[in-house]
């Protein structure tokens, strides 16, 4: 208990006396996670929407695959991208391994299934409500997808934030493809892992408190947006 309390003290100290190095790590975490969430969202959102509305051969199989990917250990994802991006791998020429871009790619790959699965649920629920009315008006599939995406935009924004949370809290894959290089690919989670392995548990947890704070702020924002949209748009 004492250690946990002292961790909060350290976290507070870290924030109030933050040095450039810490801010560098925090900022890099946020920057990479935002880009990963945007890319993963751009791919997962339409995927989830199509699976949610359309009926096509292989849809059930796709849903099973998407749901299974939700539980995929991130370190496996990391390993796959490590082998792909390694100089000895098929994409080795790009020289991306141990760079921030490799981190973004691995994070985005982890964001896609979570965004797709949540989007599918959101769109399916909305579609259950809208389907008859839409068909009565003679709305085609493409327009129906656009309309549903627009009408659920606030919920989908929170889905995007969930994707951001997934990316920001990711450690296994990030460690493998990023290499935890000081000042280059060291993000909050890998810094926490490093401090843990150095036995500096209070500092590790202190960094963890900052990470929790960021995720908490993001979720509070998501909650606020939903509340506001419910009041404004019903």
């Amino acid at each position: 208990m004492f250690e946990i309390l002292s961790s909060f003290e350290i976290a507070l100290g870290l924030i109030t006396h933050a040095d450039a190095e810490l801010w560098g790590i925090v900022w890099l975490s946020i920057e990479l996670s935002v880009v990963a969430a945007v890319i993963g969202g751009a791919m997962g959102l339409p995927l989830g929407a199509i699976v949610g509305i359309a009926r096509f051969p292989g849809r059930r199989a796709l849903i099973v695959v998407l749901n299974a990917m939700l539980g995929l250990p991130s370190v496996v994802v990391g390993l796959v991208f490590y082998l792909l991006l390694s100089r000895a791998g098929p994409l080795g020429e790009w020289g991306l391994l141990f760079t921030p871009k490799a981190i973004v790619i691995a994070q985005a790959a982890l964001v896609v299934p979570i965004v797709a699965a949540l989007t599918r649920q959101v769109i399916e629920d909305a579609w259950a409500e809208y389907a008859e009315q839409m068909r009565s008006l003679g709305v085609g599939t493409a327009r129906a997808v656009r309309t549903l995406l627009w009408d659920t935009r606030f919920t989908l924004f929170t889905v995007g934030l969930a994707g951001f949370g997934r990316a920001a809290s990711e450690v296994g894959a990030v460690m493998v493809v990023g290499g935890n290089i000081d000042g280059v690919t060291r993000v909050m989670t890998t810094a926490i892992a490093l401090e843990t392995s150095k036995g500096d548990l209070p500092l590790a947890l202190g960094l963890g408190v900052i990470l929790i704070g960021i995720v908490l702020a993001v979720n509070a924002a998501a909650y606020g947006i939903r509340e506001w949209s419910a009041r404004r748009h019903g």
Binding site: E132, S136, L137, G138, D151, S229, G234
Partner: peptide
């Protein structure tokens, strides 16, 4: 033709935009 249901299903936009939407589809 058109149909009105027991529970109206409205899009998350203004009343005017809901009517305009139906016209656009038509």
């Amino acid at each position: 033709q058109a149909m009105v249901f027991q529970r109206p299903v409205m899009l998350r936009r203004s009343a005017l935009a809901n009517v305009e939407y139906a016209l656009a589809v038509a």
